[in-house]
Design a protein around this nucleic acid. Structure first.
Lengths: 342, 342
DNA sequence: TTGTAAGCGTTATCAC
DNA sequence: GTGATAACGCTTACAA
């Protein structure tokens, strides 16, 4: 019940020194040539008293907290909370704990958070934040702290990146549509410089070009959901020749589907639809909608793996790496073979 | 760039002692009668050098880590990740950080996690876990550590609880249906001893009884989604007199709605539907579905408030408290006035 | 009003 | 093979 057992108590009880106990506890018994006898005794007393090392003291001494800071835009977004689960699992398995904060898109807030994290000497960072915070994150990366970025690519920041293979994903999705007989495939995206969005666009155009088809792209200057829905409506009305649409993100898919709530369902009815990012709704509505599924499990595991690699490395000189993890295409009713036109 | 500034460096630079610096830093300058002169100097040097206290050292000394352990079933569930966001905000504002882990329903795992947390001397816990882990949590609560439980009520554990007012929520939802002219309202729940589910049921039955109506309850012995859908199907087929159904949880609503994917949409078409717990889909489908929205913001804030109260209390003797936070009813098309029968 | 120094629980250097 | 002991950076009782 009384949980104030320290390494000293163990030492006293065994009749040895704290040094010895520490060596045993840290698996250095052999290396330090501690006798099997004493080693066994120490271990038994530890078990008996239910001793737990105080990791705060250890951290102070070693300078390592075994804590990883996890920073995302908004932890309540499904993509992030899902990946948080994976990361937690993977990190726990290696004795690391995750401390998190949602940054929002506020510079001041992220500064505070980073400063708090530093104060607590987190060993490394896992980050995917909104635009506009490059400066702060850049400073962190340049300070030499191990940082792994994921989901978002920040062109000005040299770091390790774990990304979804956006290009490959839309390339495959587009190819899938072509193979199923769709002739006029549009791509709905936002006006942006975000690398991942541009790659999605590229994957689409390349797949079309390879098949001798012409891209048909709607770039929305995104302000809000209603305006986006309207833009999509106008686009579809102006392009009656379309038989398929790929939405470049989950919220764009949502905005597109909302047409059906404004009595414009006819605009969608003849169309094959592919959504970048899967969500519950897509499986549920009729026809169910084909979606590109982000490889959450792999992303999370790779993020942790890479960060641990950095944490264990003695030097910081090794080249930064970028990994593109393949997404998978979940094929549903919306992109069945196009029998109407063939 | 060199971040190795300690309180000593500040003291040297100012030409005073670490004691004085510490006092100033902890806002005890006045209390300890430090001269305004020195206080100002300390602050300016601190700012100049960009000094950040090392909270590990502080923790070791004070025994307080300013870290809260957050334990849920599965962080990737929307309810939990949403509440995690709120809790993070509220706790950060008070200088606390959140460390989290998903427990799953594995006894061994929760033991490990609790032990890890204890090792790291978290100051308090926020917990909502799956059934079957009562024993471990009970031990924790009884050890005197501040713990606030939420969402789930564990009858054998005396602790602070922050809960949704389940009873009131279903009472109101049922009353809403009655007022809108529905005559035969069913309640679909699971066979369980979970307090919150039973209260939902009670709210429903009381509202009916108050209005002189007879409850019509389906208690599913839940095994999996398919089996639940089938049970709902049979129930609806056997009770053609029904004109409204309340589903006692989000997954039950889902299972119910899945009927429409098996060609059984007719079973639902005449029915008013209310879902306990809101999710995206409900707003989207046609007709959109009325839902009880959990008061996530309030729950999260209250959880933190209560835990901080415990953390600040010097004694542990104060009575445990339970708070029931009211949910709100989001009325949508599915429960519009029943004009068919009236 | 300010400074000295002990001590929080470890780890790790060095001496024996 | 094992044990003193300094050090990690901070807070705080006590001394001055």
């Amino acid at each position: 019940m009384n949980e104030k057992i320290s390494i000293k108590d163990i030492a006293n009880r065994v009749g040895t020194s704290t040094t010895t106990v520490s060596f045993v506890l840290n698996g250095k018994a052999e290396e330090k040539h501690i006798s099997a006898n004493i080693t066994a005794k120490v271990l038994s007393v530890v078990a008996e008293l239910g001793y737990q090392p105080n990791s705060i003291a250890r951290s102070l001494r070693t300078g390592k907290s075994k804590i990883i800071g996890f920073l995302v835009d908004d932890i309540s977004k499904p993509f992030f909370s899902n990946i948080a689960g994976v990361i937690d699992q993977a990190a726990s398995a290696q004795g690391y704990k995750i401390i998190f904060s949602s940054t929002g898109s506020d510079k001041k807030r992220i500064k505070e958070i980073l400063s708090m994290f530093k104060e607590r000497s987190v060993d490394g960072y896992i980050i995917a934040t909104a635009e506009g915070l490059e400066e702060e994150i850049g400073a962190l990366v340049n300070s030499g702290t191990p940082v792994v970025l994921f989901d978002r690519y920040l062109p000005n920041i040299k770091s390790d990146y774990i990304l979804t293979n956006n290009h490959g994903a839309t390339f495959d999705a587009t190819t899938h549509l072509i193979e199923n007989g769709y002739e006029n495939i549009a791509f709905v995206t936002i006006k942006t410089v975000q690398k991942q969005m541009l790659e999605r666009l590229n994957g689409y155009t390349e797949a079309l070009q390879k098949n001798g088809k012409k891209p048909q792209v709607l770039e929305i200057n995104y302000q809000n959901s209603e305006q986006a829905t309207l833009a999509i409506q106008k686009f579809l009305e102006a392009h009656k020749e379309l038989d398929a649409v790929i939405f470049a993100s989950n919220y764009l898919t949502m905005d597109g589907l909302k047409l059906s709530r404004f009595g414009k369902e006819k605009l969608l009815s003849g169309l094959a639809i592919v959504s970048f990012d899967d969500f519950e709704l897509l499986e549920f509505i009729k026809p169910s909608i084909t979606a590109i599924q982000q490889p959450i499990q792999e992303l999370g595991e790779k993020v942790v793996k890479q960060l641990l690699k950095r944490l264990k490395a003695d030097t910081n000189d090794t080249e930064r790496e970028t990994f593109n993890i393949d997404a998978s295409l979940c094929i549903r009713q919306s992109t069945q073979k196009n029998t109407v036109r063939n």
